[in-house]
Nucleic acid binder design. Structure first.
Lengths: 115, 115
DNA sequence: CGTATAGATTGATGACTGTCGATACAGTAG
DNA sequence: CTACTGTATCGACAGTCATCAATCTATACG
């Protein structure tokens, strides 16, 4: 792995923003993929339910009923959120628990920084 | 139009966040629609080019070549961004100029607020 | 008027996506 | 081991979307 100086020469290295400079093609692709994970109402609600849970995590079994979709559909959406890095899963016994990944949300927030 | 008290009883009335409380179905739908506008690499690049323009606005004629798509395709994507409220258009003579809508970006940023 | 150019719209097409029923795959309980 | 339950995967279907060529509209200029 090549070492990188990480000087202030590249100010937006850590978190690209739409307004700092025109995004490169691959940066735009990555960002679009992340936003695509949020482009479905069911996934937004799932993320919202998980993010607002007092315990910081929610059992998958408690996510089916609130969104009014079948269990396979909810499982599919959770997979999309997970692959986008927005939530992490932990299997404990029979159940699977989901937590949000705050850093990932903050990265997307930073990308939307306006001027 | 019904008058609303706007007391602090409804803390997230102005800008719903995914982590404040589970989002209602229509809130989630609106948010998902906004993010869907950002779910395409071409649109992310277009927004980025417009947002980072020194003059604050960009002629549509200068948006076709950078993203490497046909003129109708670029026009289509600009329409999507416009309908999502992310950019505004102004026709001046033959040309059309696009600007970002910072408040809209900030609203989406707020929605991603983690805890 | 006629011509040229910028931009939007239309129509077609191939690819992707949300949904669900059926099924497979863990774990747990007996 | 068997039965049961929570979760993920599979297969199919319908709806949506990105893309381009062709066309249309509007403005500018002789």
């Amino acid at each position: 792995m090549a070492k990188r100086p990480l000087t202030s020469i590249e100010p937006e290295l850590c978190c690209p923003s739409v307004s700092a400079a025109p995004l490169a093609e691959d940066e735009a692709r990555d960002l679009a993929a992340a936003f695509a994970a949020l482009a479905d109402p069911v996934r937004v609600r799932l993320l919202s339910i998980i993010a607002s849970a007092p315990a910081g995590e929610v059992c998958a079994c408690d996510l089916v009923e609130p969104v009014g979709r079948s269990q396979p559909t909810v499982s599919h959406h959770l997979k999309v959120l997970h692959q986008a890095g927005l939530v992490e899963r932990e299997k404990r016994g029979t159940w699977v628990w989901y937590r949000v990944v705050p850093e990932r949300l903050r990265a997307l927030q930073a990308a939307l920084a306006a001027t």
